[in-house]
């Protein structure tokens, strides 16, 4: 079978796998961000919690993804094939990465800006929502880009357990000694990573029209 034939035959399945891959990458990103925001704020506010949370996040990040995929079913009483394991594992990684990012982003808000807001009579939550978080957007967005790209790459590991996404093309191709599925999977995975990265970059820019524009990184 030639590459073109294979692609034609499997177009539908490839589209399905791509959709799954997207879903499994993006959902944990959102969950991770939602969890990391309050945790990061907590870490930022407490001198004692910050090193603890950062160290914990570092240790969590140390656990290889494949190991986490396998251990989660035991902890959650889910089946090993359940995509929920992947979503939760990646949410945990994303949170671990972003807790520190959010804390550092908030810490990078200039002290005199905070003092001004304080003295002007902003209440604590008003200051967080209207002043600190908007100013921390560039740092958080940079962290989110790293998390997004990593997620897209990690998701494919779940193929070893049989959870369907683009990684499934790798195992298929490997068993058949056939390059086309593997290359297709790698390319699509790269494209997804690139697109997500670009989208977050754009979103970050549109949320921060106030930033001096330097060349994009």
């Amino acid at each position: 079978m030639t590459a073109a034939e294979w692609l034609r035959h499997n177009a539908g399945e490839i589209a399905d796998l791509t959709a799954w891959h997207l879903w499994l990458s993006i959902l944990p990103l959102l969950i991770g961000l939602l969890v990391a925001l309050p945790l990061g704020r907590l870490a930022h506010r407490s001198r004692r919690l910050y090193p603890m949370l950062v160290a914990l996040a570092g240790l969590v990040y140390t656990v290889p993804s494949l190991a986490l995929f396998i251990l989660l079913p035991k902890l959650l009483s889910t089946r090993i094939l359940d995509p929920v394991n992947v979503v939760i594992a990646l949410s945990v990684y994303t949170t671990a990465l972003l807790v520190r990012v959010v804390a550092d982003g908030l810490a990078a808000v200039p002290a005199d800006v905070i003092q001004s807001a304080h003295a002007m009579g902003y209440r604590s939550h008003q200051r967080l929502i209207r002043i600190e978080l908007p100013i921390a957007v560039p740092v958080i967005a940079a962290g989110l880009r790293v998390a997004a790209v990593s997620n897209v790459s990690i998701v494919s590991m779940a193929a070893l357990l049989g959870v369907p996404q683009l990684g499934s093309l790798f195992t298929q191709g490997f068993q058949l000694h056939f390059f086309t599925p593997i290359v297709t999977g790698v390319v699509l995975s790269l494209v997804i990573a690139l697109v997500l990265d670009g989208l977050i970059l754009l979103a970050g820019h549109s949320l921060t029209p106030w930033q001096p524009r330097r060349s994009a990184r």
Binding site: P110, V113, I135
Partner: peptide
Amino acid sequence: TELRRKIGYVIQHAGLFPHKNVADNVMA
């Protein structure tokens, strides 16, 4: 908080909000 809203405050480096334009800073 209510007290502070009755007292204008100016500091050394102005402490302007970097994410708001001048008009929005003034009327924040």
